[in-house]
């Protein structure tokens, strides 16, 4: 393999991993507050649809991104209304959100099928992109890839070092105890769910404005579900989410590249590779049960009704 090829593969890996990273980081925050939102796939589609329509009608990619994020937030607030305020079953509410989002995006977006926008293009960061090997991989990407990396740092620092992160984790551990300590449990859960919605909306906009600048029904093709699994396998740790997203990305790119080299391996087997590799590696990484338990939000999936 030549150096150029390796650079191409890794650069494509970043692109392939970005939608997963965005969704998974958002869902990680959401789940750390004790709320499991299975509606990622639906929210992502609504985000992709809204982002595309936004960019097409305003002629500005940035407004498209804003529309995608706003649509994601709106969807997630709908979920929060059911799962947090009304304390409905989180699993059922999340699944309903996916079904609703899939249908809604197809319905509203149907008039916009077949249009194209000039999507985000790569921006080489001066100086940094001249670094051999790493430069073209990390610093010659589109704006939303940079945004995803910034968001990773934000989430990481927030969870680890900020008071807000502490509150979030406390609510996710035991909402009763947090409530007894005077924390606004429902508000924190709302914010966490809303942040998850924003990130998933952004991931959707990334698909329809950067990855493949077009709108098509069902274009997320299961990425929302993969991201959901990623959060669990990464044992709710941002660093592992990042690692897992890119691992999945590189394996899915290799699945294509290796075939081009004429490797005599069944393509079905290669297609399994991303799932297999990601699961195996992340399960091996989290084989220490004590550490895993430390990061698992204990109240996940349980609705909380404040007792007065």
């Amino acid at each position: 393999m030549s150096m150029d090829l390796i650079i191409n593969i890794l650069s494509a890996t970043l692109v392939a991993g970005t939608p997963l990273l965005l969704v998974a980081l958002g869902e990680l925050i959401c789940e750390r507050s004790g709320v499991l939102n299975l509606g990622q796939e639906g929210m992502m589609l609504v985000g992709a649809m809204a982002g595309f329509i936004g960019a097409l009608t305003t002629g500005s990619l940035m407004w498209g991104v804003v529309a995608g994020v706003a649509a994601g937030v709106a969807m997630s607030l709908l979920f929060a209304l059911m799962a947090v305020t009304l304390a409905a079953n989180q699993y059922a509410a999340g699944l309903a959100l996916t079904i609703f989002g899939t249908g809604l995006s197809a319905f509203v977006g149907s008039d916009y099928v077949g249009h194209t926008v000039d999507g985000f293009t790569r921006i080489a960061i001066p100086l940094l992109s001249d670094i051999p090997v790493l430069g073209p991989i990390l610093f010659n990407q589109d704006l939303l890839v940079y945004a995803s990396l910034v968001m990773f740092v934000v989430v990481y620092v927030f969870l680890r070092y900020s008071r807000g992160g502490l509150l979030l984790r406390a609510v996710g551990e035991s909402p009763e105890a947090a409530n007894a300590n005077g924390m606004p449990v429902l508000l924190i859960r709302y914010l966490a769910v809303g942040f998850g919605g924003a990130m998933t909306g952004l991931a959707g906009a990334y698909l329809s404005l950067a990855y493949t600048p077009m709108w098509s029904e069902g274009m997320s093709a299961g990425r929302g579900w993969i991201a959901l699994a990623l959060v669990v396998f990464a044992t709710w740790r941002p660093g592992r989410v990042l690692f897992g997203a890119y691992l999945f990305g590189v394996a899915s790119i290799l699945h294509l590249v290796l075939q081009g080299f004429g490797w005599d391996i069944s393509p079905e087997l290669l297609a399994m590779l991303p799932y297999l590799v990601t699961i195996i590696v992340l399960v091996l990484l989290s084989s220490n049960p004590t550490r895993t338990r430390l990061n698992t939000p204990l109240s996940i999936g349980q609705p909380y009704r404040p007792s007065r």
Partner: peptide, 25 residues
């Protein structure tokens, strides 16, 4: 003629990746 099997009928992102991979080659 180089052939890349993507094991799906519809996945825009993966189809784009496959196209880029072929162009890289």
């Amino acid at each position: 003629l180089k052939v890349v099997w993507v094991s799906t009928w519809f996945d825009p992102a993966k189809e784009a990746d496959a196209a880029n991979t072929l162009m890289d080659q």
